[in-house]
């Protein structure tokens, strides 16, 4: 291959590559784009290591993005979901549900798609957010059930301050019933232990009397 042919080929390739990669999609506003990058860093940091600082960063970055998407309820919902998940994991730490981090990753991935992909129509956007909401609700239910079973403290579930749902109320009632049952068992056990101690004392006294005689 002679030099001029090589130069021509290189120039043709360069032109084609410039054409192909050159046209960029319309980007979100510069500030939103910057905040999204910071949010991505926070999410990836969690993937690497889960620390309080990373989680606080995730919550802060989600909050910073919220005002940019006030007119876009779909993106706004995902951001609120991320913030709630961040708060939940920060509060529960190692006791968090095993799927909580996976949810963070998934919600962020959907959020990124919604913001960056301008080709998505409204229907596709709604489907993405509906899928995430469904998965989020499922996670919440699992957390609530887990807590009821584990006889844990009153929930710090991934949601904002609001009226408890029917599920939460029933979980709470279950929790109360379980608490009462446990109390009854404890009382009964301590009564039995007391009775046994009294028997042991009587037997020891009898033994002493026998030894003396």
């Amino acid at each position: 291959m002679d030099k001029s042919a090589k130069t021509k080929l290189a120039s043709d390739i360069e032109n084609r590559l410039d054409d192909f990669f050159g046209e960029q999609r319309p980007a979100p506003s510069a500030t939103a784009s910057y905040s999204l990058e910071k949010l991505k860093s926070a999410v990836l940091s969690i993937d690497w290591e889960i620390t309080d600082a990373c989680l606080t960063d995730l919550i802060d970055q989600s909050e910073a993005l919220l005002p940019h998407f006030e007119t876009d309820p779909i993106t706004h919902a995902l951001l609120r979901m991320l913030r709630a998940l961040g708060r939940y994991i920060r509060k529960r730490k190692a006791r968090s549900h095993q799927d909580a981090i996976k949810r963070v990753m998934s919600v962020f991935s959907s959020l990124e798609t919604l913001i960056n992909d301008k080709q998505l129509d409204e229907g596709q956007r709604k489907r993405i957010v509906a899928r995430e909401i469904q998965a989020f609700k499922k996670l919440k239910e699992q957390i609530e059930n887990q807590r009821a079973v584990k006889y844990a403290a009153v929930p710090a579930a991934p949601h904002d301050e609001r009226e408890p749902t029917q599920n939460e109320l029933s979980a709470l009632l279950e929790h109360q019933k379980f608490k009462q049952a446990m109390q009854a068992v404890e009382e009964r056990l301590s009564a039995e232990v007391k009775e046994l101690k009294a028997k042991v004392d009587t037997l020891q006294n009898e033994l002493k009397t026998i030894r003396r005689s």
């Binding site: 291959m1 090589k6 080929l9 290189a10 390739i13 360069e14 590559l17 410039d18 990669f21 990058e37 991505k40 860093s41 990836l44």
Partner: peptide
Amino acid sequence: ALRGDNVIATVKKIISETIVSIQEHLA
């Protein structure tokens, strides 16, 4: 890669190098 800095430059370079190399092998 996270911010996208030089990600496209990298792929453009490798595609270019690869096509030239293939062409050289064929010539």
